[in-house]
């Protein structure tokens, strides 16, 4: 269960202060598929990174499973993100000099308690699930955009997180590839019970969610 209470996030911009989020309060049930929509600058990505423990709100609280997220220290927050959250981003953010398999293994390296031995088989299995078994040794630049996004999803699943935060995951993809990615996310939600929170511009993508949040000027509509 995620509870956001009266969260405001203020940015200092060149023309003075800007409210990215303005007194937002929401609750998200575990296992939900929430889509966040809104125009450019509406605050949807700010909401996502605030939920993901990446951006401390100016005021208000973010509570996940009864724990105040921003009471954690920086390294505790990093461990929390590593174990509990998978990020899928519009620009994929794969490491360019590592192949697909190595990219998927990165979050596992940051969780040393799981040991070194199981990393490779798990990464191979995740890439197989994404239909990339034969592409595991390819560098990101040798993969198509759709394949890169599937590698990013495999990476997000590396430590079997409870929640996936997706920021415009289909923003760079053509409609067919976008559908493919959205289907993967839906399956993860329905079959594995992962909580999915997805920011999108696309009405088609937004329709995949079980819950929908619409933002304008940092406020929920």
């Amino acid at each position: 269960m995620i509870n956001i209470t009266d969260v405001t996030r203020i940015y200092d911009g060149p023309r003075g202060q800007v409210k990215g989020l303005d007194r937002i309060s929401i609750s998200i049930e575990k296992g939900s598929f929430v889509t966040v929509t809104g125009g450019s600058g509406s605050g949807k990505t700010t909401l996502l990174v605030t939920l993901g423990g990446l951006l401390r709100p100016t005021t208000g609280s973010v509570e996940v499973d009864g724990r105040q997220l921003y009471s954690l220290k920086k390294n505790q927050l990093a461990r929390y993100r590593n174990r509990k959250i998978g990020f899928v981003l519009q620009t994929f953010n794969l490491i360019p000099y590592l192949n697909a398999l190595e990219n998927v293994m990165i979050p596992m390296i940051f969780a040393p308690e799981n040991g070194n031995g199981g990393r490779r088989p798990r990464a191979e299995s995740l890439l197989e699930r994404m239909g990339l078994g034969e592409r595991s040794m390819h560098l990101p630049r040798e993969l198509s955009i759709g394949q890169q996004q599937r590698v990013a999803i495999a990476r997000a699943l590396a430590n079997d997180p409870d929640m996936i935060l997706a920021d415009e995951p289909t923003g760079n993809l053509d409609p067919a590839l976008a559908m493919e990615i959205l289907e993967i996310l839906r399956k993860l939600n329905e079959d594995e019970g992962k909580t999915i929170i997805m920011v999108t511009h696309s009405p088609m993508a937004a329709a995949f969610g079980t819950h929908r949040l619409d933002l304008r000027n940092g406020r929920l509509i």
Partner: peptide
């Protein structure tokens, strides 16, 4: 920067 940012986002601690 983007690479480091991505690593921090997916759980790299400062010591990493």
């Amino acid at each position: 920067r983007r690479e480091i940012g991505a690593m921090i986002a997916i759980g790299a601690t400062q010591s990493v």
